[in-house]
């Protein structure tokens, strides 16, 4: 969920803009470096971002009967890393503000920070910790759950910081109980969906994942090893 236009006071708009600006700037430098070796990075990142946008327009049914949409930031973080995800999330959020009227321009910085920086960071940490220990599908599922959930925790903290009230701790607990607790089933739903998507990509086009260097060759034996099927020589 995005923080709505006009919700944050000007000071916090500026602070979140600066904080996410640093990460996005670093991401752009990183892309520029990649671009020198591989000029195909630009169109590929563009389609990846478009994919994130389209994924976020899917309606995801959840256990409680409510509907949510996947953020897609966990998958992107696993595939491209935090800094590049932050750049993609910036453009996606800009389009969401201008094409779907979700989120806003003044709150763009805050939304980038929760969806493009903190969420992917949590996802990448989980992914790095679990990599090699469990199968990549389970690692991706947990990374997606972590990044989705972290996004909402960050949103709750941002809302508290904007309007702390008399007792910031009490306010934080209220916002956390609204966002973080109701988000748990939705995060699990996103994790499941990401796992199914991941499994399907691994089955159909493992070469994409191998090229991005996110899975090991040993995980897709049907693709990398020659099957002994016999037949005429």
């Amino acid at each position: 969920m995005h923080i709505m236009e006009g919700y944050l006071p000007p000071m916090w708009c500026a602070i979140w803009y600066i904080l996410s600006g640093i990460v996005v700037g670093y991401g752009i430098i990183k892309i520029n470096k990649l671009l020198k070796e591989m000029p195909e990075v630009k169109p590929l990142l563009a389609v990846a971002g478009a994919y994130m946008f389209v994924l976020s327009s899917l309606k995801l049914p959840s256990v409680t009967g409510s509907c949510s949409h996947p953020c897609g930031n966990g998958l992107s973080a696993v595939l491209f890393g935090v800094a590049i995800t932050a750049v993609l999330a910036t453009i996606v959020l800009l389009f969401q503000a201008l094409l779907l009227a979700h989120g806003g321009l003044t709150t763009l910085g805050a939304n980038i920070f929760s969806m493009g920086v903190m969420g992917p960071l949590a996802g990448v940490i989980v992914w790095k910790l679990l990599r090699g220990k469990v199968s990549s599908t389970i690692a991706v599922m947990l990374a997606a759950i972590a990044s989705d959930w972290m996004t909402y925790v960050t949103t709750a903290i941002q809302l508290t910081l904007a309007f702390p009230g008399d007792d910031p701790v009490k306010t934080l607990i209220t916002f956390l109980s609204i966002f973080a607790v109701t988000q748990i089933p939705l995060a699990i739903a996103e994790g499941l969906l990401t796992a199914i998507i991941w499994d399907k990509i691994k089955e159909l086009r493992p070469d994409l994942l191998l090229k991005l260097g996110v899975i090991d060759e040993s995980e897709v034996p049907h693709y990398t090893q020659v099957m002994e099927t016999g037949g005429a020589e």
């Binding site: 169109p43 990846a48 998507i197 990509i201």
Partner: peptide, 29 residues
């Protein structure tokens, strides 16, 4: 079935998007 369909949809879209990106690069080159 909804989850299965959504998962397939997501995966196919990713693969098609990636192919489009590679094709676009060739055309641009």
């Amino acid at each position: 079935t909804t989850y299965k369909s959504l998962g397939t949809l997501g995966a196919i879209l990713f693969i098609r998007a990636w192919d489009r990106g590679e094709k676009a690069f060739i055309t641009m080159s």
